[in-house]
């Protein structure tokens, strides 16, 4: 596709807001996802991930802000967006009376870019029986079919909303394989939300952490892993310094031990912490993605409790 939108980022979101009734589920959200990147969207249940992804597809109306998906506003022309994007929702509602082959025949004419070879390849990779009805398929196979229907038209952007939730590890591997095959072949963008941190670490080169509709982190996954550290400081008199160091995500005191999770860690961080006095000793602990994620959420919830 060589249209004018080819150089623009895959997804641009500015100041997005969404309310359900009086409850604000997305608050001033901004995102910029470059083409060819894989964006992992992390957040606890009800954080606003699904709502954001639905807004990208034009399945909901937004209250405020700008959204451009592949250069197109989904609120203005959702059909164009849907033609160029592959989407797998959290729950599958494919017509249960359709056979696998019916579902393919139904979706095929909707996409100008449908690729029969890709479809056959995925059918084989996922070992789906074209003659079986959707209602006869196992949960894993229904997700596989949904992924096939979302990828056989060679989408420029693939959006997956917790597609792996509740599936066995073998099915997950098949699905990961299928997604990666599609990602490998051309410069395609992947946006997915998940609770499964290992999957996120495998797939994502960028990570966004969201809670209660607010984006807490947005950046490269390597930076997140390499520069988010937990400092374990010993407080001989059990009192924390009056001023917290910069970039604290979350902290808690247990006895004489003070655990501080910081972003943008450098050796300088330790020096600054000890310079204030009152701290005899500092350990630096590496964190994996799950711990980092939990500390971001805990930190935000503690902060909202205090204020």
């Amino acid at each position: 596709m060589t249209d004018s939108s080819a150089d623009s980022p895959a997804v641009v979101v500015e100041g997005l807001a969404k309310r359900f009734g009086r409850q604000e589920v997305i608050h001033d959200l901004s995102l910029n996802i470059a083409r060819g990147s894989a964006f992992g969207f992390l957040g606890p249940n009800g954080a606003g991930k699904t709502t954001t992804l639905k807004l990208l597809m034009g399945l909901l109306r937004r209250e405020a802000g700008n959204v451009r998906v592949l250069g197109v506003d989904p609120a203005v022309d959702d059909t164009t967006v849907k033609r160029r994007v592959g989407y797998v929702p959290e729950q599958q509602f494919i017509y249960r009376w359709m056979r696998v082959s019916d579902a393919i025949r139904f979706c095929r004419p909707l996409y100008p870019t449908w690729n029969d070879d890709r479809c056959a390849e995925l059918l084989k990779l996922f070992a789906l029986d074209p003659g079986k009805k959707v209602k006869e398929l196992s949960k894993g196979n229904v997700v596989k079919l949904a992924l096939l229907l979302a990828m056989a038209h060679e989408p420029e952007l693939l959006i997956l909303d917790e597609p792996m939730a509740g599936l066995d590890p073998l099915v997950r591997d098949d699905l990961l394989d299928g997604v990666l095959r599609t990602l490998c072949d051309r410069e395609r963008t992947l946006v997915f939300s998940s609770h499964a941190m290992p999957d996120v670490q495998r797939m994502a080169d960028r990570i966004g952490i969201i809670d209660e509709g607010v984006l807490l982190y947005d950046g490269p996954s390597d930076t997140l892993l390499n520069t988010t550290k937990r400092l374990r400081a010993v407080l001989p008199n059990g009192r924390t310094p009056d001023r917290l160091p910069d970039g604290v995500i979350c902290h808690r005191v247990s006895g004489r031990e003070w655990l501080i999770t910081v972003r943008d860690f450098t050796p300088e961080t330790v020096r600054k912490l000890t310079a204030a006095g009152g701290i005899t000793h500092v350990d630096v602990i590496d964190l994996n993605l799950e711990e980092i994620f939990k500390d971001y959420i805990r930190g935000r919830r503690a902060a909202t409790c205090e204020t």
């Binding site: 894989a38 591997d173 394989d177 990666l180 095959r181 495998r202 080169d205």
Partner: peptide, 11 residues
């Protein structure tokens, strides 16, 4: 390698 390790080709 990406398919063998099941990781993103970008990585």
């Amino acid at each position: 390698l990406a398919l063998e390790l099941l990781v993103n080709p970008n990585t």
